[in-house]
């Protein structure tokens, strides 16, 4: 029997990543899968005054550090919330604030630095003989982040590869999503997503013994319900409740219905934690609460006949 731990959408939360690595031992899992959206969305500048005093604002609250130990603790807390701390002078802060190119460059630098550090941590903590660890990008991740996942150690980027898992199951992975209102870095049309899926499936012997590790959930599956937005990206709510609409991919849905793999592992829509059956295929989305430092995931047990059990967890 193989035990898999799947999570997604940690969005830069250092705390969640550390928990993800420790999930192998905690849940006794042989396979770890992190299904996309690894990187943070926000840089929190910590501005030094040149005299050893540092100030910043975290979650709307002014914070200061008066020495290097306090500064390190402050950075740690910022990383724990899924943000990138960046220590800079007032002059540098002004330059970054005034240039979108500088901001983009800084994001790329911090994303790569962080992911490289994470991969090193995984290499250090995981036993290659006992655990296989797959980490891929999602639609929110800058493509440059893939560089950090290509070191060839215990961490493997499974995207666009056919990965054989214990029990003769095969895993196909795609982190791209369909179009969203947010214009995120790795979103493509349904047609293009459908073509990528078809290309992947062509390379395997038996789709019914496959696991589709697709970041985007199937359309209208109950795993893709997100609040309806207006053109200003404001949630439409009625009597205090949001109006949920399906935002998943029709290409992913069509592929699952056509090929009927064993399992679909999805993320992308944080609010839609749950499981759904599309024909014989069990599709799972563990959702995400990365902002609270909670690693939502799902433990799946596979035996030779298929999925023996699954259990959602909030680690």
């Amino acid at each position: 029997m193989t035990r898999i731990f799947y999570a997604a959408d940690i969005h830069g939360s250092e705390l969640c990543f550390r928990k993800f690595i420790n999930a192998a031992r905690f849940y006794n899992a042989q396979v770890l899968i992190l299904g996309g959206d690894l990187t943070g969305k926000m840089i929190v500048p910590i501005v030094g005054d040149g005299c050893g005093e540092y100030s910043t604002v975290v979650l709307g609250k002014a914070e200061t550090a008066s020495n290097l130990a306090e500064l390190a603790a402050l950075e740690e807390r910022i990383r724990g919330n899924g943000f990138y701390p960046h220590v800079c002078s007032g002059e540098e802060h002004r330059k970054i604030a005034g240039s979108s190119e500088r901001r983009s460059e800084l994001f790329r630098t911090l994303i790569l630095e962080t992911l490289e550090r994470w991969v090193q941590l995984a290499e250090k903590r995981l036993d290659k003989a006992q655990v296989r660890c797959f980490i891929m990008l999602g639609n929110d991740d800058d493509p440059i982040a893939a560089k950090a996942l290509e070191r060839g150690g215990i961490v493997v980027n499974p995207e666009f590869r056919s990965i054989e898992l214990p029990g003769d199951w095969e895993m196909l992975s795609i982190g791209y999503s369909n179009k969203t209102p947010f214009d995120s870095p790795r979103e493509i049309s349904e047609e293009a997503l459908g073509a990528k899926i078809a290309e992947q499936v062509e390379g395997i012997d038996d789709p019914r013994r496959a696991i589709f590790n697709f970041h985007c959930p199937p359309f209208d599956s109950g795993l893709d319900s997100a609040p309806e937005l207006d053109e200003r990206l404001a949630v439409q709510s009625y009597a205090g409740q949001p109006r949920p609409v399906p935002v998943g991919s029709t290409a992913v849905r069509d592929a699952i219905i056509k090929y009927q793999p064993l399992l679909g592992l999805h993320g992308h829509v944080h609010e839609s934690r749950g499981g759904a059956k599309l024909g014989r295929t069990l599709c799972l989305n563990p959702g995400s609460s990365y902002g609270a430092g909670i690693l939502q995931g799902v433990i799946i047990e596979l035996d030779e006949s298929g999925v023996r059990s699954h259990q959602f967890v909030s680690g």
């Binding site: 926000m42 802060h93 990206l233 404001a234």
Partner: peptide, 15 residues
């Protein structure tokens, strides 16, 4: 001072 910098990504919505 600008308290933080954001990038283009999903999820930054008004709920």
């Amino acid at each position: 001072k600008q308290a933080y910098f954001t990038r283009q990504a999903t999820g930054l919505v008004r709920q």
